[in-house]
Design a protein around this nucleic acid. Structure first.
Length: 676
RNA sequence: GGCGGCAUAGCUCAGUUGGUUAGAGCACUGGAAUCAUAAUCCAGGUGUCCGGGGUUCGAGUCCCUGUGCCGCUACCA
C-alpha cells in the first residue's frame, strides 16, 4: 500500500478565506483525503499559512503592528474558516515557525552548494533615513508607463503594468517618506534553465495529469525558463544563510512550498515521532499530490520540483497536481479588492458549512470556470439534499418507526425487485469510487444523488403504505432495502458531507466510523433512534438577504469618494512650476492606433498651431468622444516617438485606478490659453 | 497586436480516442400516488452544439477562417 501526502496551496496570511479558495484547492483536497481514509489508505493532509512577503509587512506597518501579529490574526481566521467547513488537516502550520526557517535555509544552502544558485548585482532603491533597501512594494512614484501617481515599485495599479522599480519617476519611500537613492545590491538567482532537461524528462512521465495542467506547463517550457531572483532586501522572511547576505531574506515564493515539508516535520514532532515525516517525504513510492488553483501551476510543476531536484536528499516529487479552474460569483469574477466575494467566516454565520461543501462539490470548477449563484445554491440544497436525499431518509425512517418501532432486520429472502435495486446501487457506488479516484467530485455527487433517486423510485414502486395492510413481511423487506441504500450513501457521501453523514449513521444506529469495505458487511439488525430531519431548507428570504449583503458589501467598498491620502512629493520652487508649459488645446481629430488597446492618435489645435500626439486614453474615450473637447495639455515635454508617431504633447488626465478622466476648463475659453 | 483558453437546452453544466436519434439537474406542462420536509414517481426536448468553409463513409469532437467573451502580454509623455 502506498502512502499519500496531500497538500493544499498555502493560503496567504493577509486576508480572509473566500469560497473561491475553498472551491479551488481546499475542498477538493479534503474530499480526496476523506475518500482515501474510507479506503484505509495511509494519507496525511498537510497545509499551513504562507506568512512572508511584502504585502504582510506593508499591512503590518499600516496598522502599526508587527508582521507576526498580522500573520497570527489571519492564521487564526483562516483556520476557523476551515473548521467551519470541516476541512481537516493533519497539520496546519505556518511558514514563520522555526522548523520552516531551518528547512528553507537548508534548501537554499544545498541548491547553492550544488551550483544552482548564482548571485548578481542589481540596482535597487535604498532609503538612507532608514538605512535599508526598499523592496518594490515599499516604493511609490509616478508610473513610467502611464504617468499615474501612486504606482508601487513592482506594479502600477492604474495601468496594471509590471514595473522595473528603479524606473519609477519621483520615487518616494513608503517607510520614511523620503526620496530613496539607487544603490547596488546583490541578489541570488535560481538557475532554472539548468533544470530544463531534467524537468522535461520528468514531466514526460506525467501523461495522466489533467489536460489543462499539461498544456500550461508545455507552453511555459517552450517559452524557455529564465533565472529567477529568490532573495529580497527586506527584514520579514527567512534569512538568507550566507555571511555576505546579511539583512536579506528568501523570496516568499521560494520558501512557501517548502512549507509542505516543514509542516509535515511539525506534524511528526507533535506525534512524538520526530522522524516520522521521513517515511513519507523520503519514500519514492509516496504519492505526493498538490491541490491548487490554476494560478499556481507553474510554481508547483516547474519551480518547486526544481528546488527538490537540486537537493541532496531525495525528497519525493509531485505525483499529481490536480489544479482547478476559477469560481465566479453571480456572473462576476471574485475580487477581494472590490469585495465581491463570499467570505467563509460570514457564510457559516448563516448556513451550515456543509451546505457550502455540497454546492461547491456539485458545482466544482474542475474543467472550466464555474459560476456560483445564490439562487442556485438554494435550489441545490432544497431540491437535491432535502427533497431527494433528506426526504428518502425521513420517509423510510418514519415508516419504520411507525410500524416496526425502528427495528430493521435483514430478511431471509429478497424479492427479485429488491435484489435488482441493490445491485444497481452497488454498481453506482463502484462508479463513485472511480469518480473520487479521478478527482471527479461533481460526478461523484451526481452519482450518489442517483442512488437516492433509485431509493425513492423503489419505495414508490413497493407502495409499502398499501402493503402494510396485507403483508408486513414485504414492508420489512422494503425498509431493509431502503436502509441498505441509505447505509451505502452514508459511506460514499462521507467525503462530501462528513458531519451530515455521521448524523445519518447515528440515526441508523451504526456506531462504527465509515469505511468503504463496510459496503459488503452486514450490521443488521439495526435499531433506528432519535429520528429527525437532518437537512433544512433554505428560504427565499435568506437568499434575498445574502444577495442584498453581497451588493451592499461591494458598494460599501466603493463608498470612499476619495483616494487615501498619499504623502506629497517634495516641495518645488515656483520657478520649477513655471517651467511647465500648459495650455488649452482643442482636439481636432482622433483615431485608434492600430494594434494597440489603449492608444489614440490625436491632432490638436494649441492656438493657431497644430500638433500630433499619442495618448493612452482609448480605454475610457472613443475617438468621437474626445473630438472637439478643449483639454489641458502639457506642451514642452520632450517629444517621444511612440508606435512610429512623434508625440508632441501630453493630455492631462486624472486616474483613480478605475476611471480615467481628462481635465477640461470650467468655462468656454479660447484655444491656446495658457495655464498658470 | 502577440500567446493561450472558452462558446452545447430558458438557467447551471456533462459530453471520454471522431461512431446510432446530442445528454443531466433545475425550471416548465400533464398525469399517478398520499409513507414522507407539498417532499415522491411516471411521461413530455423542433437545441442553427457561436457563424462560415474544409477533411471524412461519418464532425459538438479534427483543420482553416470570422465573431464574441476571459486570462497573460505589448503600446500609455
Amino acid at each position: 500500500m502506498s502512502k499519500y501526502i496531500v497538500t493544499s496551496a498555502l493560503p496567504y496570511a493577509n486576508g480572509k478565506l473566500h469560497i473561491g479558495h475553498v472551491a479551488g484547492a481546499y475542498l477538493p483536497a479534503d474530499i480526496f483525503v476523506r475518500y482515501l481514509r474510507l479506503k484505509r489508505e495511509d494519507v496525511i493532509y498537510i497545509c499551513g499559512t504562507d506568512e512572508h512577503g511584502a504585502p504582510i509587512s506593508i499591512k503590518a506597518e499600516k496598522e502599526g503592528l508587527t508582521p507576526q501579529a498580522i500573520v497570527d490574526r489571519y492564521h487564526k481566521s483562516i483556520k476557523e474558516s476551515f473548521d467551519g467547513l470541516n476541512i481537516e488537516f493533519d497539520n496546519f502550520s505556518g511558514t514563520s515557525r522555526k522548523p520552516h526557517y531551518d528547512l528553507s535555509q537548508q534548501f537554499f544552502t544545498e541548491l547553492h552548494e550544488n551550483g544552482y544558485i548564482t548571485s548578481k548585482i542589481t540596482k535597487q532603491f535604498y532609503d538612507e533615513a532608514e538605512s535599508r533597501f526598499l523592496p518594490d512594494r515599499y516604493v511609490e512614484g509616478i508610473c513610467p508607463h502611464c504617468g499615474a501617481e501612486g504606482a508601487r515599485g513592482d506594479q502600477c495599479d492604474a495601468c496594471g503594468k509590471l514595473i522595473d522599480s528603479i524606473t519609477l519617476i519621483k520615487p518616494i519611500s513608503k517607510v520614511s517618506g523620503s526620496t530613496p537613492v539607487i544603490k547596488e545590491t546583490k541578489q541570488w538567482y535560481l538557475n532554472l534553465p539548468k533544470f530544463t532537461d531534467q524537468l522535461k524528462e520528468w514531466l514526460d512521465t506525467k501523461t495522466y495529469w489533467k489536460e489543462n495542467v499539461r498544456n500550461f506547463i508545455l507552453s511555459w517550457l517552450n517559452e524557455g525558463l529564465i533565472e529567477r531572483a529568490i532573495t529580497r532586501d527586506i527584514n520579514w522572511g527567512v534569512p538568507v544563510p550566507l555571511d555576505e547576505a546579511d539583512g536579506k531574506v528568501l523570496y516568499v515564493w521560494f520558501d512557501a512550498p517548502i512549507g509542505y515539508i516543514s509542516s509535515t516535520i511539525e506534524w511528526a514532532q507533535n506525534q512524538g515521532k520526530p522522524e516520522l515525516w521521513k517515511d513519507y517525504w523520503l519514500d519514492q513510492s509516496t504519492k505526493l499530490i498538490h491541490f491548487i488553483g490554476k494560478d499556481n501551476i507553474p510554481f508547483h510543476t516547474i519551480m518547486w520540483p526544481s528546488f527538490v531536484m537540486g537537493q541532496n536528499e531525495s525528497y519525493v516529487l509531485p505525483h499529481d497536481v490536480p489544479a482547478n479552474e476559477y469560481l465566479n460569483l453571480e456572473g462576476d469574477k471574485i475580487s477581494t479588492s472590490r469585495n465581491w466575494a463570499i467570505w467563509v467566516d460570514e457564510f457559516i454565520k448563516y448556513f451550515d458549512g456543509e451546505y457550502l461543501r455540497y454546492v461547491l462539490a456539485v458545482n466544482a470548477p474542475e474543467k472550466q470556470d464555474n459560476d456560483f449563484l445564490w439562487k442556485d445554491f438554494q435550489n441545490k440544497i432544497n431540491t437535491e439534499l432535502n427533497n431527494v436525499l433528506g426526504n428518502l431518509a425521513n420517509r423510510v425512517f418514519s415508516f419504520s418507526k411507525k410500524h416496526f418501532d425502528g427495528l430493521v432486520e435483514k430478511p431471509k429472502q429478497l424479492s427479485e425487485a429488491s435484489q435488482t435495486t441493490l445491485k444497481q446501487v452497488n454498481e453506482l457506488s463502484l462508479e463513485t469510487d472511480h469518480c473520487y479516484q479521478s478527482y471527479q467530485v461533481r460526478k461523484a455527487v451526481k452519482t450518489i444523488l442517483d442512488i437516492a433517486r433509485l431509493g425513492n423510485r423503489y419505495f414508490d414502486e413497493r407502495e409499502p403504505w398499501k402493503a402494510i395492510k396485507v403483508d408486513k413481511t414485504s414492508v420489512q423487506e422494503t425498509i431493509y432495502t431502503c436502509c441498505e441504500i441509505l447505509r451505502v450513501i452514508s459511506v460514499v457521501m462521507t467525503p462530501i458531507l462528513p458531519n451530515f453523514m455521521s448524523q445519518l449513521r447515528e440515526i441508523m444506529g451504526i456506531k462504527q466510523k465509515p469505511l468503504w469495505e463496510e459496503l459488503t458487511s452486514n450490521p443488521y439488525p439495526l435499531q433506528l433512534e432519535n429520528i429527525r430531519r437532518i437537512f433544512q431548507k433554505v428560504e427565499d428570504n435568506q437568499i434575498e438577504e445574502q444577495l442584498k449583503l453581497l451588493q451592499e458589501n461591494a458598494l460599501a467598498n466603493k463608498e470612499p469618494e476619495r483616494i487615501n491620502f498619499k504623502e506629497l512629493k517634495p516641495e518645488i520652487e515656483f520657478d520649477d512650476f513655471m517651467k511647465l508649459d500648459i495650455r488649452i488645446a482643442k482636439i481636432l481629430t482622433a483615431e485608434k492606433v492600430k494594434k494597440t488597446d489603449k492608444l489614440l492618435k490625436i491632432t490638436a489645435d494649441i492656438g493657431g498651431k497644430e500638433i500630433e500626439l499619442i495618448a493612452g486614453l482609448a480605454k475610457s474615450y472613443s475617438p468621437e468622444n474626445i473630438i472637439d473637447k478643449k483639454v489641458v495639455m502639457l506642451l514642452n515635454l520632450k517629444p517621444r516617438k511612440i508606435k512610429g508617431i512623434l508625440s508632441q504633447g501630453m493630455i492631462l488626465a486624472a486616474d483613480d485606478g478605475e476611471t480615467l478622466s481628462v481635465l477640461l476648463a470650467d468655462k468656454d475659453i479660447k484655444t491656446g490659453s495658457e495655464i498658470g
